[in-house]
Amino acid sequence: MKNKNYEYDIALSFAGENRAYVEEVANSLKTRGVKVFYDLFEETNLWGKNLYEYLSEIYQNRARYTVLFISGFYNQKLWTNHERASMQARAFQESREYILPARFDDTEIPGVLKTIGYISLKDRTPDEFASLIEKKLKKDTTFLESKLATLSTLINPKPFLFTVKVVNEQEEAIKNAKIVLVANNATYLEGFSDEKGLAHFIIRTRKLYTVLIAHPENLGVLFENVNPKEDIKVTIEKSIGSSSIILNKSGEIPGISGRIKPILKSNNAIALYADNIAVEGGKHQPYDFELNKSISVEDNGGNILHLTFRFFKGRIALIDYYKNKPS
């Protein structure tokens, strides 16, 4: 299907026992700007759907390629074989390769001929494999055409308005949610939702943005690769005992005295400075940390908070914070 604008460049099909490896591949592809279908990236979207029908649609119609991670575990699973059947239906209809086999071992998979070219994952790191996938995509002319089409829609010399609406599960407006749009080049726009839950942004050059939303009574929300050509509505859930905040360069976290300052070190590690605040019981600062992993901080009054950095780019950080350590 020439020039089809697929929702995903790559869909990943694998057995749960191989998740650790596949998740690293998915994250590496994501950082390379590849649109990847990986189940844990889609938890909210999958919630409540008829998975049998929805996954059939993904693997048969909505991805440019599917990577099939072959292992002894894969052959034993009901869902993976359902995914495989959907891929093979698509492959039968097209005159080009669609299923890209990658082997953890020599397990035979029904319908996957031994003569089909495959990639061995033995002694190959997830990042190395992700690089091979990226190279495969760049050899696909329809993939390159879709990228050029996307770029052409992101250039608009006339300013226009982009609106984010924030509501709760009862469709009630959320006031005073902080919203920051972070472009891929780390420039940003920021604002707050009004009484109607609306925040308006004047966009002068179309770029893809990561949309960050924080509120004192809710966990943070993050959406990547948002094209501002269409307004969006975001539903956030109230979370008892949990809050979120967006910091620019540095700032104070409610409930604890002192300031914190996340930084990007020369080796690309993320680290934290804290003014009159102990990190992880008094570890040396700057303290290296990872995104999405909780760290504890304590001020000179014995107040303790647990912070989870959800996003950090340029000088913008999205942080969830809790009085009790999250499970």
Rank of each mutant, 00 (worst) to 15 (best):
N3W: 12
Y8C: 08
Y8R: 06
G16Y: 05
E17V: 00
R19I: 01
Y21A: 00
V22A: 01
A26D: 01
T31W: 15
V36G: 01
F41G: 11
F41T: 08
N45R: 14
N50I: 10
E53K: 11
I58Q: 04
R62P: 06
T66E: 01
L68C: 02
S71M: 01
G72N: 13
N75D: 12
T80Y: 02
E83Y: 01
R84L: 06
Q88V: 15
F92R: 10
S95K: 11
I119E: 03
T125Y: 04
E128T: 10
F129M: 00
A130M: 09
L132G: 02
I133G: 01
L144G: 02
S146Q: 14
I155T: 11
F160W: 13
I174V: 14
A183L: 08
I203K: 06
I203S: 10
R206T: 14
H215A: 05
P216I: 11
N218T: 09
G220W: 08
I232T: 07
K238M: 13
G241P: 07
G255T: 09
P262K: 09
P262A: 12
L264N: 15
L264V: 14
L272E: 06
D275A: 12
G281T: 08
G281I: 10
E298S: 11
D299E: 15
G301S: 13
F311L: 09
Y321H: 07
Y322N: 14
